[in-house]
Nucleic acid binder design. Sequence first.
DNA 1: GTGCTTGACGAAATCGATTTCTTGCACTTT
DNA 2: AAAGTGCAAGAAATCGATTTCGTCAAGCAC
Lengths: 326, 326
Amino acid sequence: MATIYEVAALAGVSPATVSRVFNGNTVSEEKQRLVRDAAQQLGFTPNKTARRLRKQSSEIICLLVPDIENPFFTALARGVEDRAQESGFSVVLCNTDDDPAKELRYLQIAASEHMAGVILSPASDEVDLGAIASLGRPVVAVDRTTPYPVDAVKIDNRAAGIAATTALVEAGFRRIACIAGPAGIEETEDRYLGWKQVVTARKTLVRDGFLQHANFRVDGGRAAMNALLDLVQPPDAVVTTNNLMAIGALQALHEAGIDPEDFGVAVLGELPYLLPPPSSVVQVRLPARHLGRTAATMLLERIGGDTQPLRTVVLRAEIARPPLSL
Amino acid sequence: MATIYEVAALAGVSPATVSRVFNGNTVSEEKQRLVRDAAQQLGFTPNKTARRLRKQSSEIICLLVPDIENPFFTALARGVEDRAQESGFSVVLCNTDDDPAKELRYLQIAASEHMAGVILSPASDEVDLGAIASLGRPVVAVDRTTPYPVDAVKIDNRAAGIAATTALVEAGFRRIACIAGPAGIEETEDRYLGWKQVVTARKTLVRDGFLQHANFRVDGGRAAMNALLDLVQPPDAVVTTNNLMAIGALQALHEAGIDPEDFGVAVLGELPYLLPPPSSVVQVRLPARHLGRTAATMLLERIGGDTQPLRTVVLRAEIARPPLSL
DNA sequence: GTGCTTGACGAAATCGATTTCTTGCACTTT
DNA sequence: AAAGTGCAAGAAATCGATTTCGTCAAGCAC
């Protein structure tokens, strides 16, 4: 890899001039040409590490998501990536497994790697954004918020919960349960509140045990569904607060030999790659990609020096009935 | 962020000593303690950028995949990540969209960022590994190989194709078509050859048009399936060479009102999150995660200075019949 | 006691860019 | 003509670590 010094030597100028050529500063036409020719000839690419050390910043955005295998988050990542590319930034995607320790570790890396900013879906309320914050690096929370004063992009989770539940009520179901995520995660908490609001307002039957907490994964959804089916008076429909848990719930229904046409299922999120789902499945589409794109836009604005007051952007989910893209 | 100089000043030693403490060199007990205390007190973390500039290398692995939204590749990424973590390495995940230009761009970034090594699924045969290679950074090709002399981990694609097709034959299907990926990609080429070998050996009926090429995505699979169904004498079964195309094919079947029980479908790959697939769907499990883990292991060995001759590890796919994990 | 080895450790060079000073020259301005 | 202004461009400092080199003292052999 050629260095700026070799280019300078070949072009017969000082290294400073070479740097100026590549950073848009005032250099005479004459020397510009000399430098560019020399650079071309040597196949010179500026060394990012050296530049970063000097400038104390880079063109890399760190994206922290809890589960890279969840299509919701990969779609979100695509949104971030597309937007970042447009501005010449690269994205580093890191998987936290919803583990605060891993999360902290990546945040420290982001800091010591001089990354330009961080977009994250916090694993818990206790995220320590101290290190990043003290460096003055911008942070945008996405999908979930944090107690720290940072910009955020989220979904109107309660409205989504309301929409999903209402759809089930209107489809004629009267004993609607809810499979929510782990207690304490705001995102799922709000969705569950949406459910609660509707079942209360519509005076549908709610029994003890109709609210199940599960981890966000397929197995959690399945276990929760089984628990619901084991109730003395089981529900006739269920709202699941994320996509993977819905899959688990549908699997459990299938195993129990229940015809999905007879059991209402509403999902907050999309069922990825699903073959025609039973027509009673209601999907509330979460704009994952758009969420990512918006977060990236906000982050880039901050990186660019924008100092307007903190913002929280709330995106609305749209309800979709099957057959969706079919 | 505290620097090594501040720590040195506080501990009353030279910066060199501080560095030595954190790099396992000979330092007296006494000063070790002094330095560690000082570091602790200041919350010192070594600046990775400076270190990288000096050492001309980092602890970051670059992983290039063609489609981050394909569960096959996220599983692979998990494998890489898990292994990397064990050795204290971080993984940067980049999406090439099967676009050689994007790929090249990322490879250049990997080079100028002094990343420790690269694991990639090449978008095409024309990948230019020149830049990376000339830096002496190790590269491991995964899932697909390249003409460049690098280590590789792949799947026995032909065997997988054979297994899938054979299963259909044994299930009694006699007009078996194949939906392959884009022509020219070795990975899909081999799988298709497996199909060809079996249909030839078993003398099943093969018509013009029974081999369809498609992009690797859902829409491609659907279009190909529709083309097959439009044939005058359509097939009674199909082998699809990747997971997403299978989804598309199944969608097309559904739209055409064909009962999936009557139409044989075999997939090279797993159908993610699928509700109980029609019992005639044969899935050949591709060990994606393991593929990633193996590639990471090989790369880390090279990074560690291993100079054994080039290796190509071939992993065998295992055939699975539904209901799989259900 | 002299000479030699060994080990701890400080001084200074180094990685490769960016950026601040400075210098020198051309060109106005009065 | 002297002084002031502006601008291109080189010299050198800087970012924060690692590493080479050299010094000094302790330990050991003869």
